[in-house]
Design a protein around this nucleic acid. Structure first.
Length: 126
DNA sequence: CTTCTGACGAAAT
DNA sequence: CATTTCGCCAGAA
């Protein structure tokens, strides 16, 4: 039950929390599910709170499937490898294999979000 | 109250 | 492929 999601930050974290083990999502992808939220806000949400509390922050990478230059980058990479996520020679993750398809439409509705957004999102990426 | 700053993305050029 | 521009939350000092 996800209530009191007035804050965009809370919704972002809630969404990140849904990413299953062995899969990754991009900042932009997460932002895409929540109207009014930009990829930057996703980054801010994770950085500002040190969201290590039940939130799999390491499963959020940039649009290129890589880890941006941040302090916990090394640990992030290590955690992903431990989950079976592979990096190519350019230190990038193949989103066709490890990318998170997104949450179930029902879950989005439950969170007060629009499933159509997810549809548009999956339609965009290639 | 103000100012600073912090894990990004996409389109245009 | 490199560089620029805009988008505009939230917590700390």
């Amino acid at each position: 039950m996800i209530a009191t999601c007035s804050n965009k930050t809370a919704r972002i974290l809630a969404l990140v929390r849904l990413i299953p083990e062995g899969r990754v999502a991009s900042y932009g992808q997460i932002a895409g599910y929540i109207p009014g939220v930009t990829p930057r806000m996703v980054g801010f949400a994770l950085a500002g709170r040190g969201a290590t509390d039940g939130v799999p922050w390491h499963r959020v990478v940039n649009a290129q499937g890589g880890i941006s230059g941040h302090a916990a980058g090394a640990e992030q990479r290590r955690r992903l490898l431990a989950e079976g996520v592979a990096f190519d020679s350019a230190e990038r993750i193949d989103r066709r294999r490890f990318g998170w398809p997104g949450p179930d439409p029902a879950t989005l509705v439950e969170m007060g979000l629009d499933p159509a957004a997810a549809f548009a999102l999956s339609h965009r990426d290639q």
